[in-house]
Amino acid sequence: MNRVAVIDYGMGNLHSVAKAVEHVGDNLHLSVTSDEKIIMDADRVIFPGVGAMRDCMGEIKRLGIDDILRRFTETKPVLGVCVGMQALLEHSEENNGVDCIGLFAGNVMKFDEGLTDESGNVLKVPHMGWNKVKQTRSHPLWRDIPDQSRFYFVHSYFALPGKEEDVYGMSTYPNSFAAALAKTNIFAVQFHPEKSQTLGLQLYKNFLDWDGGF
């Protein structure tokens, strides 16, 4: 039995994450929960999120999710998705500045508006749609996913990690930004695997098989 907890802190749409994981999981026991015991008893945790960072961190702290994640990642794997990834950094400049969980060194910044691509077209914010992800380091979660595959993104803020060695995937819009971060027991992606068709499902499948190492 593979016990998976999708952390529910009342922010955003966890149903698509749960549906995607159910689609690829064998012998799965999936809980969408904020209950500390259920989370700590799980074999692995998915930490999604959408919405504004101040509201997210408010709920994360109120429910003690930050502390739960710190303890959980000492021994078992966590996958952060979108705002779930951003919340794992130290600080976000969203909502006039919000302190985050700090499992990765670095900050979360807003995309500048009015930037242009090489043809002079103004780039819209949010960065929305299918963009290429360059796998800057090999990782078990990239198994059977070709380098430079496209994944679905929707975000106005991006991670600026403090340590280059934490970066496992990069995208550009128009400047490079971190699309995937990893360290022992943590993999985190800015894009939405649950909305990225076959290759996104593959990433969830890889996470269900991952022991947290490299």
Partner: peptide
């Protein structure tokens, strides 16, 4: 530039 234009 690598963000794809979308067909919906």
């Amino acid at each position: 530039m690598s963000l794809a234009k979308r067909i919906i």
